[in-house]
């Protein structure tokens, strides 16, 4: 089993890009937050695959459009039922990147920033699975979920399950480009602003 062998793998055995990524965590940068969203072939982290990753950075709670990340992955598995949701069809116009290259680019973009997303644990799990396939450890970044922030914002103890659509409606954010990774990331970033910038 690969993961067993990996467990005892020495740090210096990891590829250079991972070393560079890991080295960033010697310091922490609290001002940069990455809002991330993955579109996948389905909701099962074991079977399903990442089709695209979109992310945009906030610096001190301001969204910097220029500082964004978007990649479409080349995947063998493609379930027709999920196409209806995210609209990514195999061989569509976007240039496709291999999963390992995509992950490599993502790590570089993430650096040591905090990752934020809506129901983000699923996305993290998907990325960690991809990392494991490459023989690499899990993401080292801090993670926050808009769903938890929303509960806190409302002053409720237990997690309230709200969809991104519901949050956008509540905060009067016009829903555009839903179900594209970058579009969802942008919407989530706007929800995040309303949750953390105090009135």
């Amino acid at each position: 089993m690969g993961w067993f062998k990996d467990l005892f793998k020495k740090k210096e055995d990891y590829p250079e890009f991972w070393q560079a990524y890991a080295a960033e965590f010697k310091q922490s940068d609290l001002s940069r937050v990455i809002v991330l969203d993955c579109e996948t072939t389905g909701l099962n982290p074991v079977e399903d695959k990442i089709l695209s990753i979109g992310a945009v950075a906030l610096h001190d709670n301001v969204i910097h459009v220029e500082n964004h990340f978007s990649v479409f992955l080349h995947q063998k598995l493609n379930k027709p039922e999920s196409i209806a949701v995210h609209g990514i069809v195999k061989n569509k116009m976007q240039p496709l990147t291999s999963e390992s290259d995509a992950i490599k680019q993502l790590l570089k973009f993430l650096g040591n920033s905090k990752i934020l997303g809506h129901h983000i644990q699923f996305d993290i799990q998907m990325i960690n699975t991809a990392l494991a396939t490459m023989g690499l450890p899990k993401l080292k970044n801090q993670v926050a979920d808009t769903n938890d922030l929303y509960s806190k914002f409302k002053g409720v103890d237990q997690s309230m399950h709200k969809s991104l659509d519901e949050l956008c409606d509540e905060f009067k954010i016009p829903k555009k480009d839903r179900h594209t990774a970058l579009g969802d990331a942008f919407l989530t970033a706007q929800v995040y602003q309303r949750l953390v910038i105090s009135v």
Binding site: N61, V62, I63, V65, E66, A189, Q190, I197, V199
Partner: peptide, 11 residues
Amino acid sequence: ATKVRVHYIPK
């Protein structure tokens, strides 16, 4: 548009 930064300002 690439260079734009999005601010949210509460009332």
